[in-house]
Every structure is written in structure tokens, then in C-alpha cells.
């Protein structure tokens, strides 16, 4: 009878070792289905000596009952009959998160990157005097920006700032160099509105004045900035330009982040995106705020936040930013 005991224990051990409901069901099939191992034992009764037949029959019967009970017991351990079924495909309860405005997303990103590069945020009034917008910035009296047809005058001598450069002047007036600031903020132009122009838009200008600040460092700084914004393979190209308040001046092109410079629809197949203007602060501007232009040099740059956002998110109409259609805002 030793054989019987060993068979029995082997089978029961195997059933007990089931690791899941499915596993236990597999064991039932293995032992108790039509071709299961225990079922097949009944067929072996023919080969048993007549005097042992009865004993063998009892053994197989009781083994079958025992195995079935054990399987059910094991199965019960894996499933909880009191549990209600959960339809995991029903919609979840709706939660709403507050969305960033896309211009703020870009502005925050600029604040972070420039912040890590040591630039502090400076702010200033949006209704400004002509002195801070034009005179202090070496803007000649004939410059078109001074005309009411180009700028939005509130009254005589006061207008909505056309550049945030006024903030730079105010910052330099108040303190002593070195200065390292960015001045993100709204600027205004008397400009007919269309898909690419609005009378109000957002600029982020930067200023760094110190001993030994150079044009090459301006290029390096902007390159580092654009690498942080668009990825480490980004290239920067300077083109000569003219601004009254900087000299030398440049327009800044950045290798297209979409095609990497190969040319695509975004960059109008040029491989470059024009993203801002910059230059070395004009000695006259420094003198206007009492900074010794022989001892100190510095650079300034300006970026259009709407333009960065339009390129980054594929916004084709600049007016969408102030429309505040929630279907637009909820995409960010």
C-alpha cells in the first residue's frame, strides 16, 4: 500500500501548490477530467489482482473525493464570493485640472532657464513717458515709433510702452552695475490686427551689464538659452541689423527645431527661424543712465513670447491667445 500513499500525497501536494484560480482549474483538468490522471486510475482496476480490486476501488474513489474537495478549497481561497464585479471600462469620475495659459507656459519656461543663468526678473509700468521709451534709448526724435500712427498714446507725452526696454532703463537708473535681468511683459503698438500682428503682445527682453561683457558672450548666452529651450543640437545665427539702442546689433535666427535645419514648412524651407533681436547696449544708452561706458559693457536682447508659443504649439493665429476660448486653453 506504500505505492498508494505516495501517489495520493503527490497529487494532493501538487493541488495545494496552485498559485491562482486558473492554476487550480488546470489541476482539476489534469486530475479529474475525462482523461485526468485520477479518472484514468479507474481504468487500471482490470490489471489489479482480484483480491486487491476492492481495496484499489476504495482508494481511487476516496482519492477523487479528496482531490475535488481540495481543489474547491484552493479555489475558494483565491476568489471572494462577496465581491461585486467592477466594470473597469466605465468612464472614470471626471476631475478637472487648472490649465496654464500657453503664453504663461512659455514665460515661465523663459523665467526658469534665464533664472538658472543668473537673470532676475524686473518689471515696470506699462503706461510710460516718452523719456523711458524713446529718449533714454537713443531713439532719434524722427523715429517712426514716436508717431501716434505707430504708438498708442494715452495723452501728450504718455503712451503704452512699445518695448519693455523702459524696464531696463529704470533698473539701471535705480542701481549700480552689474545688472542681469529679464523683463517679460506686455508691449503695445498702433497696429492693425491680423493673424500675425496684434496691438498688444508679450516681449521678454534681457539685459546684462558688467565689466567684460562682449558680443561673443551675447551669442554664447543666446545659444545656451536656445539649447535649453529647443534641445542641445540647436544652432544660433546672427545677422547684422539696426536698432537705435544697441550697436553692434543683430537679428537672431535659430536652427529650426522641427527639421533640425534641413528645411520644412515651419521654417519656410530656410532651416532657420527668426526669433529676436539683440546687440551690445549703445554707449549713449549707458551714459544716459549714468553708467561709465568705458568701464562697463553689456548686451540686450528681445524675444517675442507669442512667436515662440506659435512656433512651439503650431498656433497659426496670434489673436487666439487673447480670445481665451476654453476649447483652445484646455489643450495646454
Amino acid at each position: 500500500m506504500e505505492d498508494f500513499t505516495q501517489i495520493r500525497e503527490g497529487i494532493l501536494r501538487d493541488i495545494r501548490s496552485s498559485v491562482s484560480l486558473e492554476d487550480a482549474e488546470d489541476k482539476r483538468i489534469k486530475y479529474l477530467s475525462k482523461k485526468g490522471e485520477i479518472t484514468l486510475l479507474f481504468g487500471q482496476i482490470k490489471t489489479i489482482a482480484p483480491d486487491k480490486k476492492r481495496e484499489f476501488g476504495q482508494f481511487v474513489n476516496s482519492l477523487r473525493d479528496e482531490a475535488l474537495d481540495l481543489i474547491n478549497e484552493v479555489k475558494a481561497g483565491f476568489s471572494d464570493k462577496n465581491k461585486e464585479p467592477i466594470d473597469t471600462t466605465l468612464p472614470g469620475r471626471k476631475f478637472y485640472r487648472g490649465r496654464y495659459h500657453p503664453l504663461n507656459l512659455i514665460k515661465d519656461e523663459l523665467k526658469t532657464i534665464f533664472g538658472q543663468m543668473g537673470f532676475s526678473v524686473a518689471t515696470g509700468p506699462e503706461v510710460e513717458t516718452e523719456y523711458y521709451i524713446f529718449d533714454a534709448l537713443n531713439m532719434p526724435s524722427w523715429h517712426p515709433a514716436r508717431k501716434t500712427t505707430d504708438s498708442l498714446y494715452v495723452d501728450k507725452g504718455r503712451l503704452l510702452r512699445t518695448e519693455t526696454s523702459s524696464v531696463q532703463i529704470r533698473t539701471m537708473e535705480k542701481g549700480k552695475p552689474p545688472f542681469r535681468i529679464i523683463s517679460p511683459g506686455r508691449v503695445y503698438r498702433n497696429e492693425k490686427e491680423n493673424a500675425t500682428h496684434t496691438a498688444m503682445f508679450t516681449q521678454c527682453e534681457g539685459l546684462y551689464i558688467n565689466r567684460g561683457v562682449s558680443f561673443a558672450e551675447l551669442k554664447g548666452t543666446l545659444k545656451e538659452f536656445f539649447k535649453a529651450l529647443y534641445g542641445k543640437n540647436t544652432q544660433v545665427r546672427f545677422r547684422p541689423h539696426f536698432f537705435p539702442f544697441t550697436e553692434p546689433s543683430a537679428e537672431v535666427d535659430v536652427s529650426c527645431f522641427k527639421c533640425g535645419g534641413a528645411g520644412c514648412s515651419l521654417c519656410k524651407s530656410s532651416g532657420w527661424l527668426e526669433l529676436g533681436g539683440c546687440g551690445m547696449v549703445h554707449p549713449k544708452v549707458l551714459e544716459n543712465v549714468g553708467v561709465d561706458s568705458e568701464e562697463f559693457t553689456g548686451f540686450a536682447f528681445g524675444l517675442g513670447i507669442e512667436r515662440l508659443a506659435m512656433l512651439k504649439y503650431g498656433v497659426n493665429d496670434i489673436r487666439d491667445f487673447t480670445e481665451n476660448d476654453l476649447r483652445f486653453l484646455e489643450q495646454f
Binding site: 487648472g98 495659459h101 487673447t322 481665451n324 476654453l326 486653453l329
Partner: peptide
């Protein structure tokens, strides 16, 4: 849960 807007001045 509130979303930011930016409007014209």
C-alpha cells in the same frame, strides 16, 4: 482646478 486666461488690456 481653475484655468488661466490672458486678455487684452
Amino acid at each position: 482646478g481653475l484655468s488661466e486666461t490672458l486678455s487684452k488690456s
